[in-house]
Nucleic acid binder design. Sequence first.
RNA 1: GGGGUUGUAGCUCAGUCGGUUAGAGUGCCAGCCUGUCACGCUGGAAGUCGCGGGUUCGAGCCCCGUCAGCCCCGCCA
Length: 667
Amino acid sequence: MRLDPLGNFSRSHRNGELRMDHVGQSVRLLGWCKRSRNMGSLVFLDLRDRWGVVQIKADETEIEPELLAKLKAVRSEFVLGVEGTVIERQSKNPNLPTGDVEVKLTDLKIFNTANTPPIPVDDVVEGGANGADAGEDLRLKYRFLDLRRPSLQRSMILRSEVSYIIRNHFRELDFIEFETPILTKSTPEGARDYLVPSRVHPGEFFALPQSPQLFKQLLQVSGFERYIQICRCFRDEDLRADRQPEFTQVDVEMSFVRETDVQDVLEPLMVKLSKLVGKEAHAPFQRLAYADAMEWYGSDKPDVRCDVKIQDVTGVFATSDFNLFRAAAESQGQRRVRGLYFAGEQAGAMSRKQLDELQDIAKHLGAGGLPYAKWGKDGFASSFKKFISPELDAALKAEFHVEGEGLAVFAVGTEAQTSKVLGELRLRLARTFGQLDESRFAFLWVVDFPLLEWSEENARFVACHHPFTSPHPDDMEMLESNPGACRAVAYDLVLNGYEIGGGSIRIHDAETQSRMFRALGIGEEEARSKFGFLLDALAFGAPPMGGLALGLDRLVMLLVGETSIREVIAFPKTAQARCLMTDAPSEVDARQLKELHITTTAHAAPQTYRAGVMFFESVPAELQAPFHALQTLSHSAKPHSASTITMDGEVVRVETSNLGGPSFEFE
RNA sequence: GGGGUUGUAGCUCAGUCGGUUAGAGUGCCAGCCUGUCACGCUGGAAGUCGCGGGUUCGAGCCCCGUCAGCCCCGCCA
C-alpha cells in the first residue's frame, strides 16, 4: 500500500477531547485505527490516540469515491491522519466520552499499515477480545503492542504522575536529587550482585547497585542533609509477582533525624498518592512493633484491613488429652499452640472439602496438618473432637469469644512455624469470608525490627536490614552479649500486606560501625577492604542520619490495583529473569568475551576427570558425594598408585599408572 | 535449588474411556449491507496438539525426558 508522508500534517485536537462544543469545527486528528465498521456506503472508524477515541464517519453521498475506498482499505492499527468536520451524531453513544459527536471525513492520510496484531490491542468489556487475557508470554514478547492498550497506558501515565508528585513533594521540603553510580562495588552482604566485567582491569568486576545505600550516607557526610533519588536497583535473586531483577526505589536520606522525622516526611506523601487514586489515608499511620506484628499477624508486613488476630491458646490445652497440643504446653515455650478464630455463618459453614484444601495449604507451608474447630449450623465439628471435653469446649469459646457460628484453625510448633502458617491462613480466610475490605488503603509502620538474625547457612549473625543500621540505643550493650535480642532502629512501611518501604537510622560513628562488623563476623581487614571508604567517612564528621527507600513499582502496583509489578513496568522480565521481547540475556561474541578477559563454562562439555589414587578404603563423610571426593583427591594424587572405591555399591579397583580404571564424568 | 500449574487455529479455550476427517468463539480474508459503536448476514482460509523419546494395532489424551509462561517455598542485607 502507498503510504502518505507526514509532511506538515499536524493535529489540531486530541481525539478524546472532542465534545459538542467542537461541532462545526474543522479538525485534524492523529492516531491508530481501533476498529472500523463498514456498512457498504456508510463507514465508521474509531480513531485512538493517548487521550481517547473518537468516531470517524464517511457517507458515500458526501464523499468522493476514491476517499471512501481509501478509508475502506484501512485495517486495525493502521496509523492515520484524519481531516474532517465535527458534527453531532444522529445516534449517540453514552459509553464513550466523545459519544455525542463524530468527525465527518474530508481527507485521510495513511502514514503506516500494520500486520494483524498477535494479541488484541483492546481491553474490551464483556465477552469480546481482551488483551489482558492474552498469555503473558505473548504480551511480553509484543510488549510494544500490549502497552498500546488503554489500561496499560493508564498505568504508565499514573506511574509518571506518581513520580512527579514524589519529586515535587521532596523538592518542597528542600531535598536535593542526586544520581549515584550504576557501576559500583560488589558488597559481601545481602543479595547476589549483577556483575559487570571491567575491560581495562582484567579479572575485576563492577557490581550493579542493590541500592545506593552507602552513597546516600556519604552524601550526608558531605553535608547535603536531605537527599532524594528515584533510582534503579538490581538484585540477582529469584523472582516473584512483586519482585523483578531490576526495580525502582525512591531513595531518601536525611541528616540530624530521628525515626519519626523520617516517617513524618513520608506520611503526607502517602496521603497525597492515595488521594491521586481516590483513596483516603490518614496520618499519622499506625505503628506496630515487629514482635507484635509477628505475634498477632504472623507477618512482618501485616494486612490490617482484617481485624482478626492470631491468639496464643497454648495454655488452654495444658491439661487436655490431645497429646499434640499438650506436649506443646509442656515444652516450656519451645512450641506453642496458636489459633485464628473467624466468626460468621460463612466461617461456620466451611465444608470438609474446603477445610481439606486449607489443610493442603497449611502443609505446604510446613504444618503437619490443620486442626480445626467449627461451630456451625449443624453443631460442633472438629478434627480433634474426641479430645474436646465440655470444659475444653467452654475454654475455647471463652478464649475466642465464640458467639454463634464460627471457625477456629490451629497451628502447633515453634513461633516461626506457627506464624508462617497462620499468617498465610489469616489472609486466605479473611478473603474467603469477605472480611478483608479490599477498597481500603491501610498503611502502617512496623518498627523495632531485630538488628541481627542467626544464619544457619553462614553459621553467623547477619543483618536483618543492612550492616549500617543503628542498634536501638537501649540495646547497645547487647550487641556483644546477646546479639540476637538486640533491636534495631529500623522500620518498614506496609500497605495492605505489602512492604512498600523500609529504612533505618544509620550508624554514624566509626566505633559503633566496627562493633557492628565484629558482630557480623566481618574481620578488621575485610571491613577495611570492603567498606574502608565508609569507615573513613564516618571518621571525618558524619552527622547522625537516617532514611528510607520506597519500592516504587510495588507502590504503583497497589495504587492501580494490580497484583503484579509487571503491570506497572514498561518492559518487565519474566519469572526466569528473561526479557521475551529482546531475548536478553543472550550469548555474546567470543571476541567480546576475550576483550573482557572472560571465559564461560556454561556450554563446556562435561569434563572427564581421571582420578587415580585412593588413599583410603572409604570416602570420608564430608566428601560422600563421589565426585567431590575425586576432585579433591585428584589434586593430591601420587603418580603411580591404586586403590579401590565403592561406587553405587560396587567395589572397583582404580589405578593411576595405566588409567585403566573407571572414569567419572562431572561438571 | 524445590513444589504446583498451564502449553491444541493469530488470540481465548473445549476435546469424553486411547479409536473415523481435531472443534467452538473471536480475529483474519472475500461478498452483501446508510446509523454502527462487541455492527449484522453469507461464505472461506487457517493446526509441528510446545519439543524429543517411549508404550500401543492406534496417542492431543498414557509413560519418561525437556523447554517455556505463571504461582508459591527456599532466596531476596
